[in-house]
Amino acid sequence: MLILTCPNCGIAAEETELSPGGEAHLHRHGPGSSDGEFEEYLFLKENPRGVHFERWRHSHGCGKWFHAARDTATLQVFGTYSAQTTEPPQHIRDAITAARPGWRWRDFS
């Protein structure tokens, strides 16, 4: 069972109280971008075994979105953080580094 602490209301919410929102930190390229960039935004998602960043919504609670960093294989949660950011904050990266030295996810490490 996956338990994520919603940073908006502070509840340690169990998985069935949440709705998954897919991969986090997607970058949608603006006007003038290539078909390849749009394809990447739309279809080319990470599917790692290990460290992963996701968006979740506390749909049966406060209704707010947030980000979560977790391990897809062990379900270890490294932390949750605000949805209003384009990259994982330093304390989350530090928590992952402590548990998984040398981790890499897209451009983050």
Binding site: C9, I11, T16, E17, S59, H60, G61, C62
Partner: peptide, 9 residues
């Protein structure tokens, strides 16, 4: 506490 009761919010 906002949560789920059975199948509903």
């Amino acid at each position: 506490r906002r949560t789920r009761l059975g199948q509903v919010a």
